[in-house]
Nucleic acid binder design. Sequence first.
DNA 1: TTGACGCGTAAGCATCCTCTTACCTATTAT
DNA 2: ATAATAGGTAAGAGGATGCTTACGCGTCAA
Lengths: 126, 126
Amino acid sequence: MRTAIDEEPEIFDAVSSSARRRILDLLVEGGQPVKRIAGHFEMSRPAISQHLRILLAAGLVSEQRQGREHHYRLNPERLGPIRDWIAHYERFWDDNFMRLRTHLAKKTAHKPGQNIEQRSQDEKKR
Amino acid sequence: MRTAIDEEPEIFDAVSSSARRRILDLLVEGGQPVKRIAGHFEMSRPAISQHLRILLAAGLVSEQRQGREHHYRLNPERLGPIRDWIAHYERFWDDNFMRLRTHLAKKTAHKPGQNIEQRSQDEKKR
DNA sequence: TTGACGCGTAAGCATCCTCTTACCTATTAT
DNA sequence: ATAATAGGTAAGAGGATGCTTACGCGTCAA
């Protein structure tokens, strides 16, 4: 788990941009040349090229040239490190452990500023 | 799926920093006051406060004051949007179809910029 | 009360990001 | 060959990030 944290930070970085997430989502439909990808955005084609370069460096996409077109396709396995990192939190909201934890926290938290135990109280609204 | 993309970009943003991911990982152990969190880092305590503010704004942590200490605790459910976004890619590397696709892709194109072939045209039109 | 402690915020600074326009190469079409 | 197309790269502007130090406020201890 401590190992998962600093594993391939370029992937977390690449995915932190909503434009790049949209590109990945587009590529689910299949490999596409740059012009077609750029067609879905407002920004200039060079900007798209730059995003693609970041995705490429992270290994999230790969490139194959076809004549003058450069087709980019998804490398979904490269999302693995993110999924793995998320995975070690999942039990906290999915399973009994989390329900118990939440339940106990609600039960024991009533007066603020009492002791070292952590509790969740009034900030549970969302 | 198009909806999942732009959903809560602050969460993707918050998690794109390795310092902030480390903070979240620390908080798995339980809520902690700022000073204790900062003890695990080289950077100054104000820098930690600033990271915590970003995590707080994203809803990934919550704060509760106990005397002069501010305890932060994890809100793991807030990682849900990331998990959900990842989830719609999982079948691409989890299931048989993806194994086949990867296998075929490796056979014909692997390193970026090396291959002239393009087969995504017929590969993914499931 | 005075002082130490825990923490947040302000201000400043250096760096990085993300666009843009301009320009270049490679490929295809006429 | 010439022109048009697809796309990469360079350079620069503007804004966002991520630190730092300085300082202020509330809380606890003597």
